[in-house]
Design a protein around this nucleic acid. Structure first.
Lengths: 116, 116
DNA sequence: CAGTTGCTCTAGTTGAAATAGAACAATATA
DNA sequence: TATATTGTTCTATTTCAACTAGAGCAACTG
């Protein structure tokens, strides 16, 4: 699993982890049943704290992307979803937003508003 | 201008302001040329600090939604944009994301990824 | 001119993020 | 069964952005 993290980013580390892993699951480079590195292991390889990794894992569990079990590790959940339509819509929306000169933050907050 | 703010929210106050004002501009309830309340005035009516309001105003200026001038105030910029297509795409994407059981945070981070 | 309003500076408080260490509970494996 | 693995839970500390506060400055209005 290729995963990097930028301590200088404005985005919290745990959020970078969540985004990165979720992206790989949705993108298909991580498949259902696959096992992620143990939290302590991933933490060491990224030179961050175990708790930060665990926090990310637990968020992804809450979102339904991971199954966590003591002794066994973190396993990609079987959601059996088709993200093609979503990907197409995301691409189209981003293109339109860029055409209008919206920042990522602006578009992102419009999404959140529309979600409620 | 109707605007509220929730100090208990996880979203920073300045971001709530940005989102709220930007939403009203894009939604059409604030039109080009209209003048927003003076920062000190809005701060007092929302019971928050002036600096927080100014920070929001400055972000909206950087995004092109406001013109700021000393002595004159904050005025809605004339971007002359048509947001109908954007609104349609946002609605469609959110519907699809909800169908897939994605959280707002998940969709929001997918957007950010696609933007780069 | 006086008043308004955004801009800039310093300074203090608060809370979330991140780190650190330890012990515990469930699972896997030899 | 015994040992190692791995997520869970707890306490504690550090760091930094968000927020608040106050003051004075700079540009514009009437």
């Amino acid at each position: 699993m290729i995963l990097t993290v930028d301590p200088a980013s404005a985005l919290p580390l745990f959020e970078q982890l969540v985004t990165g892993i979720r992206g790989q699951i949705i993108g298909g480079s991580l498949s259902a049943g696959e096992r992620l590195p143990a939290a302590r292991e991933l933490a060491e390889s990224l030179d961050i704290n175990v708790h930060t990794v665990l926090r990310a894992y637990q968020i992804l569990r809450d979102e339904g992307f991971l199954d966590l079990r003591r002794g066994r590790g973190a396993i990609v959940a079987d959601r059996a979803r088709d993200y093609d339509e979503l990907d197409r819509r995301v691409a189209g929306l981003v293109a339109e937003a860029q055409r209008l000169g919206l920042t990522p933050a602006a578009l992102s907050s419009l999404i959140r508003e529309a979600y409620e």
